[in-house]
Simulated assay, not measured.
Amino acid sequence: MQFAESSGVKLFVESTGTGTPIVFVHEFAGDYRNWDDQVRFFGRHFRCITFNARGYPPSEVPGDVEHYSQALAVEDIASVLRWAGVKDAHIVGVSMGGYATLNFGLAHPAMARSLTIVGAGHGSDPERHEQFLRDSGELAGRLVSLGMEEGIVHYANSTIRRRFKEKDPRGFATFNRQFAEHSALGSSLTTRGCQMRRPTIYELGERMAKLDVPTLIVTGDDDEPCIEPALFMKRTIPDARLWIVPRTTHAVNLEEPEAFNRVVSDFITAVDRQRQE
């Protein structure tokens, strides 16, 4: 096993293939294994770097909520790049990882060749933000009191997963089995330290308007909490394009891997071509 160190925490990292690097950043309910379809596809021509966030074994699980935050998630990506010995990379993130990808671009634009932000924005709606915080707090409590397998049942079967379950029952079952293998403590503290404290997409608007990194924003048309934030990002980030995927909910890379790989490949290839001109 290989580990990068970030702010005193060891992060499990895998690197596959050679060429221009792509760093994949997983969602709250996922881990590095969620990117298998992407690593197999992009690993033919790119260097694919996947890692587990802090709190997700075999990465270390700090026991203090202050060791979990949006800022630390951003610095963890930077630490992985430094560990890999690359000065910049294409950054691709889903949900929690999409938030981290956006904030990484804002904090370290010189290290980002491009940003692909997928399913980001849950909890940003001002009218639903308080409910999001209540739901997140309840989830964090259930995880430590009931354990992962029982504590995730409601979250894993929410409406933002329904198309995945319909389209690919076996893939959905694998996803939930892997989710249940996570650390209850790490997942609970990630919820409290990162999810519940991070700025909303709308609060980042002023900084996004100055972002000078090519950006692809992706959302499923049935991922209702993320549609308006996706439109806001498209309208705010100067060099942004938006892909809305029909009959798709949250984890687009898992629900529609072939389409996802094709669109992201076209995007990053175009970005690299433009950099060479």
Results as ranks from 00 to 15, higher is better:
S136E: 11
F104S: 14
G43R: 11
G205V: 14
G105T: 01
A230Y: 04
H250C: 14
E150N: 11
C226Y: 05
R163Y: 15
V263H: 03
P126Y: 10
T50G: 01
N34C: 12
G17T: 05
T116I: 13
G171C: 13
A107N: 08
A53G: 03
F172S: 10
L106C: 12
V218M: 06
E228N: 14
G141Q: 12
F104K: 07
D221F: 14
V86H: 08
V61T: 06
D239P: 10
G55S: 02
T101L: 07
K167P: 01
D223S: 08
V153N: 03
D223G: 05
A230S: 15
H129D: 04
R262C: 06
S158Q: 07
H129M: 09
N34S: 12
D223Q: 01
D239E: 12
E60G: 04
V218D: 03
K87M: 10
P229D: 13
A270G: 12
F28N: 11
M208D: 04
Q195F: 13
A173S: 15
H26R: 02
S124H: 03
I160M: 10
H67W: 08
E150G: 12
H90I: 08
V39C: 02
D239Y: 11
I22H: 01
L81W: 06
S6P: 03
H45C: 03
L254Q: 11
A73W: 04
R197F: 11
S158P: 07
V13P: 00
S7P: 00
A4L: 02
R235Q: 13
L102P: 00
F232Q: 07
E150K: 15
V13S: 02
F260Q: 07
Y99C: 09
P257K: 14
R40E: 07
A251E: 14
G17E: 00
N253A: 15
